[in-house]
Amino acid sequence: MRGIISVSSGALFGLGLLISGMVDTSRVQGWLDIFGDWDPTLAFVLGGAILPMAIAWNISERRRAPLAGGSFPARPAQKITTDLAIGSMIFGAGWGLAGLCPGPSFAALSFGGWEGLMFVGSMVGGMLLAVPAKHVRSAMA
């Protein structure tokens, strides 16, 4: 059950990213390029994605458990930490530089050539570098 849900969700995510054009780095960079030839497409993608997701959150509040069992994720403490701010800005800088984020970089793996593979490999490296950084940050706290 969990496996079928996981693979279906991943497949829908991949199709959505392909159809929406989010695997196209020029579209993402066009959205961020407010001083150049601005492309508003990303706003339609985000708006479209938020709608079913908001309904899903609403349903989850009225249901006791997910279909495959377990429990719904608890709302994390609504604290805007330094890690959240700095991490998001570092992420955003890279997102603008290449026009790719984690989801689309995987969705494009089958047709993104060596360039896509090189980005994903570097992203995995960055994820591994975040482990000691988080340790240092929690030791500082």
């Binding site: 991490g87 992203m123 960055g126 994820m127 988080k134």
Partner: peptide, 11 residues
């Protein structure tokens, strides 16, 4: 870009 995206998203 890959390192920034991976590192930043995890942080």
């Amino acid at each position: 870009a890959g390192i920034l995206v991976g590192f930043g998203a995890r942080l």
